[in-house]
Simulated scan of single mutants.
Amino acid sequence: MREYDLSTARWRKSTYSDQNGGSCVEIADDFPGVVPVRDSKAGADGPVVAVPASAWSAFIGAVKNARFTAA
Rank of each mutant, 00 (worst) to 15 (best):
S17Y: 00
D29H: 09
G21T: 02
E3H: 09
V25S: 12
S54Q: 15
M1K: 11
A9D: 07
S57R: 12
V37P: 05
K64H: 10
V51N: 11
V63M: 06
I27P: 00
T15S: 00
D5C: 09
K41I: 05
V25D: 00
G61M: 01
E3N: 13
A50T: 15
P36L: 04
R12W: 02
A53T: 07
L6A: 03
D30G: 11
V34I: 15
R67W: 10
P36Q: 04
R10L: 12
S57C: 06
A62I: 06
R2F: 11
A55E: 14
T8S: 13
P32Y: 12
T15R: 01
C24A: 05
R2N: 14
A28C: 02
R67L: 06
D5N: 14
K41V: 06
Q19L: 00
V48W: 10
K13V: 00
C24G: 04
W56M: 11
Y16M: 09
R2I: 14
W11L: 10
S57I: 05
R38D: 07
Y16R: 12
T69G: 04
V25I: 13
Y16P: 04
V48Q: 15
V49A: 15
A50W: 08
E26G: 03
E26H: 05
R12G: 06
T8R: 12
V37L: 12
V63Y: 01
P52G: 06
A62T: 07
G43S: 14
M1P: 15
R67Y: 01
W56V: 04
D39V: 03
S7W: 10
W56Q: 09
V34Q: 06
G21V: 01
W56Y: 10
P52H: 04
V63Q: 05
C24S: 02
T69R: 04
D29V: 12
G43M: 15
R38H: 11
W56N: 07
V63A: 08
S17Q: 03
V37K: 09
A62Y: 05
V49T: 15
V25K: 02
A62W: 02
T69A: 08
V34R: 03
P32I: 09
Y4G: 01
Y4E: 10
A66W: 01
F68L: 13
A58P: 02
G61D: 03
D30P: 09
S7L: 08
F31Y: 08
S17E: 03
A70S: 13
A70R: 15
W11G: 05
M1C: 08
G61F: 02
